[in-house]
Amino acid sequence: MNPKIQTRELSFYYGKVQALNRVSLSINEHQITALIGPSGCGKTTFLRLLNRMNDTIPEVRLSGEVLLDGQNIYQPGVDVVEVRQRVGMVFQQPNPFPKSIYANVAFGPRMLGMNRQLNLDEVVEKSLRAAALWDEVKDNLNKSGAALSGGQQQRLCIARVLAVEPEVILMDEPCSALDPLSTLKIEELMQALKKRYTIVIVTHNMQQAARVSEWTGFFLLGEMLEYRSTQELFTRPQDKRTEDYISGRFG
């Protein structure tokens, strides 16, 4: 199995508060890795470090490495825009731009310099198809993205990520604001997408982690306590604290 992303002894501080403590983890290519743990355990912080989303927060400090295809994305001289193009992100609340559906999807490619209408049309259609949204919106591409349902908005955000042709997709609780049916669609979409992309998902919903992922990491108080195949983690966790958490004894 090829590691797409590896972290080595990754620690992170918000001011004096340590949010992550020496997390070393290897994320396999073309698989779905789920990160679980109680609120405040550091899983979202960890996810955001994988595409340098925490860079803009003042007074933060980081040690350790995040390797994308073996290259440390935090080493000086690395182009952050390129990192975020290669590692896209989908957030908890669907956050379409207040623009048309078309403009939402075309936004990334335009920023990266794609201006020819013909190419853009192609990218928009391809991305919406890949996000399983095309059939529902193809006749209304000029409609505002905000007018879509929550589940459709989230798929639009996924299409927007896909439009810049990333290699990794980070998902931060992508279904927590969605109803079960929309959740199911996103989960099916993830299964289809993993053939081409590597997916890392943070979720509070343990059934979701168990359903969709191949690998699961359990975080507690800034440490990654256990990381193993999802099937093993949910049937025979090795750490008592993992067992207590997943079986609802705390958290």
């Binding site: 343990m206 059934q207 168990a210 949910f234 049937t235 025979r236 993992t242 067992e243 997943i246 079986s247």
Partner: peptide, 9 residues
Amino acid sequence: QQPVASDLR
């Protein structure tokens, strides 16, 4: 309860 781990076992 969607039991997991030792509960499920």
